[in-house]
Write a protein that binds this DNA or RNA. Structure first.
Lengths: 332, 332
DNA sequence: TTGAAAGCGATACCAA
DNA sequence: TTGGTATCGCTTTCAA
């Protein structure tokens, strides 16, 4: 025999000697119930351990109060912070987070369908890379989608991101100011739009400062990737300033450079992106860009609210200016 | 006017010219439908963009397929890994994760009620500290609860954790072996059971090795906390070996010690716990304990399965032996 | 203020 | 293989 798990409003009503409707009203803020009835109901509910189910309400309203957060790579502290920030704001709004960690785009199709079946109210993709195909799959679910740091064009899909080009330009200006003559860029995955935008801005800034084209090496947005890329760049040419697509890469690069005897920042200046906690740690003291996660999250939620209305905002994009956090890794 | 968000099986049935039951069967694996009917249904479903709702099924079965994961401090890479590991296994089982980041115990009461209303199938608490009160709140929800790294006693609440005492003993043995004479322990928060157990084991091990009682300083399981604690210990006495309650503390301690000119590992050996990625980074090369997250997760899921049955396992506890990962911070 | 009754959108059983 | 119908636990009219 299957154990009955939850008491229902009917059982509470029976115990309290009132109608089921009375129970429902007691748990509906602002409904009209007499104090006497309410007390009886609450007493009965207490005895039975009754918690009104939210499920029927979802059925009635098609709104679940669930917001899906699709993430890859929580090991990057930046995304951990994004999740925390979302969580805090969504909780204030009474929503729950459905976390969907994803390894690659491949699993995203199945995920989108599943989320639709749960009637989630919105999907936030915090994937470093979101393919156009995947975006369209999500778009087809008719659920408002906001993509973090990946501009995509599809109906009911908006995007919010750091102003990467601006950050890139600032990085170039700072390195120039610190006397760098031979700049390099350690990129993220080839298909990462954020990395591409940071590089584009970096190039613009270098050009404006009269500096040469940067050496470029790709990595994987990871510590190890940054270390390898730094070695490839170094074998290539004399480099005295490196802008990295994110902090994890930058930390790997710093360690790799030091391992082969290059001094940071004395011989090579390094800049990262994200301002993760480790950037401030003793041995690194990494100059970086704070993406302003709270502002990003705020913008994402506002966009979702707009898209949840009858008319669907299409392809909207919001950029948040990053804040340069200067530390020791760019000392002149 | 409210926009209708999702097409229903009735609408699909009408369009396909079949009964609603036929639609349901088409989407029920292993149900008997003729190929002809199924094709008509699928075509209609495709046109309308129909995805069968999971909500009615939850109502019928009281099983949502939702598992709640309560976490504090995702900024600790260890918990990020725990979440990823859970996610992977739960997805295989067809479950979704409801992520509940929590700042303190205080919010946990509201959280438990909310989760009960969503009819989540289980709750996993990966909080570093779970008070007895909070455990009882969760227990009262009648939902199976598994607590990570925090032994608690309450009905339907089990716990899974690293064998912290064993780790502590191994840490003592290793330090002794490396010639340490003046040991210290940097603890987590005063109410953290994991920290207390690691310390207890460490004390046992030191005693067995004929070493003196360790100096002890509390911290907050953070980088900054570890740095401060290291300074307090140092002001106190000559210390040449430090076992830290977790890696984050250990990294902070290493940086703080080096800042004041102590050489690690030459003058002071350091051991952490968790084996987070940063432990392997160049400047640190921190010896640590791998808690074996996959095994912990496996054990937690098995426990949940047992508790979901009719009879509720009470206060069960499973310990997983940690693996010592020796690196440069404990070179003799 | 209260109770009765009609849905919400699926599943599952029953006859046909 | 099919279609009709009861059912899950609520919220929401509608009368009383």
């Amino acid at each position: 025999m299957v154990t009955k798990r939850y008491p229902t409003s009917v059982e509470v009503a029976r115990l309290a000697g009132v109608s089921q409707s009375a129970v429902s009203r007691t748990f509906t803020p602002g409904a009209s119930v007499s104090a006497r009835t309410r007390d009886k109901v609450l007493a009965a509910a207490e005895t039975l351990g009754f918690q009104p189910s939210l499920i029927p309400r979802i059925m009635l309203t098609d709104r679940s109060g669930l917001v899906a957060l699709v993430v890859g790579g929580l090991e990057n502290a930046f995304y951990a912070r994004v999740v925390q920030s979302f969580a805090a704001r969504l909780r204030e709004a009474g929503n729950q987070i459905v976390l969907v960690p994803v390894d690659s785009d491949y699993t995203l199709d199945a995920v989108a369908a599943r989320l639709a079946q749960y009637r989630v109210d919105a999907i936030v993709s915090a994937l470093a890379v979101l393919s156009q195909d995947a975006a369209e799959t999500l778009s087809a679910s008719r659920i408002p989608v906001v993509s973090f740091n990946t501009p995509v064009t599809a109906a009911r899909v908006g995007s919010v991101g750091s102003d990467n080009a601006l950050g890139g330009r600032q990085a170039a200006a700072l390195l120039h100011d610190r006397g760098v003559r031979h700049p390099a860029f350690i990129a993220g995955p080839a298909d990462s739009p954020a990395s591409a935008e940071r590089l584009a801005g970096f190039r613009d800034g270098l050009r404006a400062a009269g500096l040469p084209e940067p050496r470029v090496a790709g990595s994987a947005y990871t510590y190890e990737g940054g270390a390898e890329a730094a070695m490839r760049i170094r074998a290539d040419a004399p480099v005295d300033g490196v802008f990295c697509a994110n902090d994890l890469c930058a930390l790997g690069a710093i360690d790799a450079l030091r391992r082969v005897g290059r001094r940071v920042p004395d011989e090579v200046r390094v800049i990262g992106y994200d301002d993760i906690p480790a950037a401030g740690w003793g041995g690194y003291d990494l100059t970086s860009f704070d993406q302003d996660v709270p502002a990003l999250v705020e913008a994402a939620l506002a966009m979702i609210a707009r898209m949840s209305g009858p008319e669907s905002a299409l392809g909207e994009r919001v950029l948040i200016p990053p804040r340069l956090i200067e530390r020791g890794s760019t000392r002149a």
